[in-house]
Amino acid sequence: MNKIQHPSNNDVLGAPAGWNQRELPVSALPITRTNVAGQPAVVSYWKPSAAELAALNAGGSVALWVIGQTMPPVALEVEL
């Protein structure tokens, strides 16, 4: 998936403090800081490549990876 700039983006996330860019490089991620039911939330927007769309249409799935030992509350959805 390719991260994209969205009209609602109002901030950018960089690598966490102390992150080893040589071991696992990360780049800046445009985000939208918002609230959901009174809770702070962060949204990033992604578009699948043509190959990924073909894989999804063939029955593939989307995998969400979170670095660490647990997974915070997350959501995936499709928006136009």
Rank of each mutant, 00 (worst) to 15 (best):
S27I: 04
L80D: 13
A63C: 00
P48S: 03
P30N: 10
P48G: 06
P30E: 08
H6C: 15
A37F: 09
A37K: 13
G14Y: 03
V62M: 11
L64D: 05
L80Y: 07
A28N: 13
V74I: 15
W46M: 09
V12K: 05
E52G: 04
S49R: 01
N9H: 12
L56Y: 02
E77S: 12
P73C: 05
T34R: 08
L29D: 04
S49N: 01
N9M: 05
G60T: 08
S49D: 03
W65V: 12
L80I: 06
P72T: 05
G14E: 04
E52M: 04
K47L: 08
W19I: 03
I31T: 00
G14L: 01
A41L: 03
Q69I: 12
L80M: 10
K3L: 13
T70E: 08
A28S: 12
L64W: 01
A63G: 00
G59D: 06
S27M: 05
V78T: 15
P25A: 11
V74F: 10
V66P: 05
V26P: 03
A50F: 02
M1P: 14
I31K: 04
S61C: 06
P16F: 03
G38Y: 07
S61Q: 10
P48H: 01
L24Q: 13
A51N: 02
W65A: 12
P72H: 09
L13F: 01
A58L: 00
A41K: 10
Q39C: 00
A75H: 01
M1S: 15
I4N: 07
A58Q: 07
I31H: 06
P30V: 09
A41C: 06
W65P: 00
A37E: 15
L29R: 08
W65C: 10
G60A: 03
A58C: 02
P48T: 04
V42T: 13
V74M: 15
P30D: 13
I4Q: 11
V62K: 05
T32V: 06
V42W: 07
V26I: 15
A58S: 11
S27P: 00
W46K: 08
P72D: 07
K47C: 00
D11C: 07
Q5K: 15
T32S: 13
A28F: 07
W46H: 09
R33Y: 10
I67K: 07
V43M: 03
E52Q: 13
P16V: 06
A63I: 09
S49Q: 02
P48Y: 00
A50Y: 02
N10G: 05
L56E: 08
P16L: 11
T34P: 06
N9C: 14
V42K: 06
P40V: 09
E79V: 15
L80F: 05
E79T: 09
L56R: 01
N10R: 10
Q39H: 08
A41N: 06
A58R: 03
Q21H: 03
L56W: 07
N20A: 14
N2M: 14
A58G: 04
A54W: 00
P7E: 13
Q39R: 08
G18S: 01
A58F: 00
P25Y: 00
A17E: 14
V43W: 03
W46A: 10
R33M: 08
A55R: 10
L56H: 08
S49I: 01
E52I: 02
D11E: 03
A41V: 05
V78N: 14
E77I: 01
